[in-house]
Structures are given as C-alpha cells and as structure tokens.
Amino acid sequence: MSGEARKRVGAIDRTLQILDILTERQQPMSTYDLARSTGAPASTIYKIVDELLERSMLSRSGENSVWLGPRLMRYGLTYRSRMDVFKEAKREMEALAEELGETIQICARDDDMMTVIGMSRGEDHFNVASDVGTRVPLNWTASGRLLLGHLDEAERVRIFSEIARPSTTGRAETDAVLLAEQAGREFSERLAVQMSASEYAVACIAAPICDETGACVATISIVLPETKARAETQRLSDAVRQSARNIETALGRRAS
C-alpha cells in the first residue's frame, strides 16, 4: 500500500473516531478534548475537525465546542428510510402507541450496544429518558437480550462476557452465562420483560422482530411505569408480541 493510501485510511479512521466519540458522549466537545480522547496528535485532530466543519459533518456548538453536523442527519435519515424493517416497524409502533396510550420504541443492535432507532410517545406523556439515538449496553435491557437471542449459546456467552457491565441502577444482570441462558429463553418465548434495570421505576416489555433467516434484527417494546407493567403484564405482552408478528408478516416472513 502506498504512503498516500495509508494516509487516507488514517484520516478516515480518525474521522470515524471523532464521530463515534461525539455519539457516545451525546454532547458537544472541544477539539482539545477530542484529541485527548482519540490519543492522536492535537494538530491532526484540529485539521480533521476543521475539514469536517467545512463539509457540515460537524457544526459549531458554543465558542469552543463542536457537535455532529446536519449532513450526518441527512445521511442517517436517507439510510433509515430505505430500511424495510424500520418502515414497517414505524407504522406498527405508531399504531400500538395509539392503541395502548403508552410509549413504544423500536431498537436495534449497534455493535455491543442497543440503540433506540424509533419512538412514539403515548398519550399519558410518561417521561422516558431513552430517546431516539440512545445507546446502552445489551445486558441492560430486555431488547438488548433479545437482539442476541437467536445466536447459539456459546456465542451469546462470549459476547456477554466481553460487553456486560453494571447498570446505573445496579439491577442489570452481568453474569454472562445467566444472560446467555435468559436471552435464549426469552427469544424462544418471543418476549422479554425488564423492570428498573436501566432506569428506576421504568419497565420495558419487548418482542423480537426476525428476518426470514430467524435472526432478530430489531425489537418493538412498550416502555411504561413499573407499577403499571406489573399490573397488566399479560395484556401488554400479548399486544407487543402481536405487533412484532404484524411487522414480520408485512415483511413477508412466514409465521413459525
């Protein structure tokens, strides 16, 4: 590989590091802090940041900080609009939110994290901290476990052993073997329920959305107060399972 090719690859890697760090932190950062976080020479990061600002990949936030730019949103929205799963899930998500009056989320796997890719708030205006774009470790949520549930047990154990970490509430399971067993069981039952693992007094009731191969590509979930979830678990579980089946049917997946 030529020196120029290596230089281009290096610049791309640094660009992705900058974008990933801002996405992870979910807040503007100074170029100096970005340089410290990447471990790259400050002069390199300053140059890349200036180029990204010129191309609207980053935007100014305050006097000394930068944030993700509007060009990224255009790319993201275009990508998402072509995802058949998301389009069908969005329609079902909005219908379920209207039917139940609860907040409904669509989640997908993003490497070792679970990301909220769609949300429709219910009419009761229950305050949910996890908005679209929120990323949390897979072991923190019902949806996170389901997203690994289709894998064989050894692979689930391997992944959970590498990425499981304590939640802020201290109630998320971190034992890789227990998580792998739970994820497999919940996937088989097409339902996962989580109480106060990532947010205090918040419950999540989720069902897997599978492709034609049987892999879980996304989840649809109801996010609501824990007290209400405990009182109406069966009704809500039936509703979210049916919504997942509706999405799969719309995508042409035959019922098993």
Rank of each mutant, 00 (worst) to 15 (best):
P70E: 05
F126W: 15
T141E: 09
S130C: 09
T219S: 10
G214M: 04
C204D: 01
S198C: 05
L58C: 02
H125C: 08
L179C: 08
R185Q: 10
A5L: 15
R80Y: 09
E92K: 08
W67F: 04
S143F: 15
R254I: 00
M57Q: 06
P166S: 04
V128L: 11
I18K: 02
N246E: 06
D175M: 13
V223Y: 00
R171S: 06
P41Y: 12
L146S: 04
R14W: 13
L178H: 12
Q182T: 15
R36E: 13
N127A: 10
R254L: 03
W67C: 01
I104L: 09
L147E: 06
S30K: 07
L191N: 10
K90D: 12
W67P: 01
R8D: 04
A215K: 11
A154H: 04
L151R: 02
R74Q: 04
V193N: 01
V177L: 13
F187H: 12
R109L: 03
I222M: 04
Q234L: 15
D111A: 12
S65L: 05
R109E: 03
N139E: 09
H150N: 03
M1P: 12
P41I: 07
V66Q: 00
G214R: 00
D13W: 15
V116M: 09
R36L: 15
G184K: 05
V193P: 01
E153F: 12
S188M: 13
L16S: 05
Q26N: 11
A180P: 07
D211K: 03
C216A: 15
A231R: 11
V177P: 06
R74A: 06
Y32F: 11
E102K: 02
E155R: 07
D13M: 15
R8W: 13
M113E: 09
C107K: 01
Q17V: 11
R165T: 14
C216E: 01
S161I: 10
V202Q: 00
M73Q: 10
R71F: 10
E155Y: 00
R230N: 03
E88R: 11
I45W: 00
M93W: 00
T219H: 06
T227L: 14
R158P: 02
L22M: 05
Y46I: 08
L52N: 03
K87R: 11
A207R: 01
F187C: 13
E226V: 07
H125D: 09
V202E: 00
W140P: 01
Q242K: 10
S120E: 14
V116C: 12
A239V: 07
S59V: 14
A176P: 14
A183Y: 02
M1Q: 11
G133I: 07
Y79K: 13
P137I: 07
I106N: 03
V202H: 02
I220W: 03
Q17P: 05
V49K: 00
G252T: 05
M73G: 09
R8C: 02
R156G: 03
E232M: 06
E51Y: 03
A172Q: 08
R171E: 14
K90P: 03
A42P: 11
E99C: 09
E232N: 13
R230S: 08
V66M: 00
I45T: 08
A95H: 08
L68V: 04
G144R: 02
E54T: 14
R55Y: 07
D50V: 05
E94M: 06
L224M: 14
T174N: 04
F160G: 06
R165K: 13
A95G: 11
A97S: 08
E24K: 13
I159N: 04
S2Y: 08
I48P: 01
D175Y: 12
A250E: 14
